[in-house]
Amino acid sequence: MADSEMPARGPRIALLLKLLTGIACAAPLAWLYWAWQAGELGFHPAEAIVHFLGRFGLGLLLLTLILGTLAHVLRAPKLLILHPLLGIAAFVYLTLHALSWAGLDMVWEWEFIAMEMVDLRYLQVGLVSLVLLIPLPLTSGRGLSHHWGSTLWHWLHRLGYVAVAAGLLHLWIITRADYALPVIYMVGFAAVIALRLLTPLWHTVRAR
């Protein structure tokens, strides 16, 4: 992020924070792989893996939005040092989510993959969500946001909101009885949107 200036001790703490966050993001993936190999995922591991990666990835993406919003609302740009890391981790999870569906659940049978993609709305919505995300990790470096100028970069990265919205729709369509998780995610997303919309208003009111 462009606007995080570190005090003297800053870089080391920042590095430590990034490291811890990186570990926290990678640990569930490592656990999933271990559980899969150890046969801990039950008798339909493909399903367990696809669901886990999707739920966790969408949660991480939402968390990325929450972090960005908090940094904005609290005027604490330092929070943003974790922003690219979370975003990239979310992208990795969601990409693996799609790949595990195609590879483990559809066993790379292109006929089945095509059939399902054509017939099932939630898969189309999910794919749109993932495709929208592709530009974001590609432009998440500090350099690019400088180079492009803040405005263009911020506009591009608003795709994150569209992707989360599409991801939530995808999750909503496939949920059928227990809506606990989608509701939690939706409340989080609604809070982010509300804060984003209300903060400028709040600042103008205060400025008067």
Partner: peptide
């Protein structure tokens, strides 16, 4: 017969690798 949630053309036999 189409179903909006699961494609009914194929199935996973639990315990098998393929479809």
């Amino acid at each position: 017969v189409r179903h909006p949630r699961w494609h009914q053309a194929t199935e996973r036999r639990i315990g098998e690798d393929g479809r």
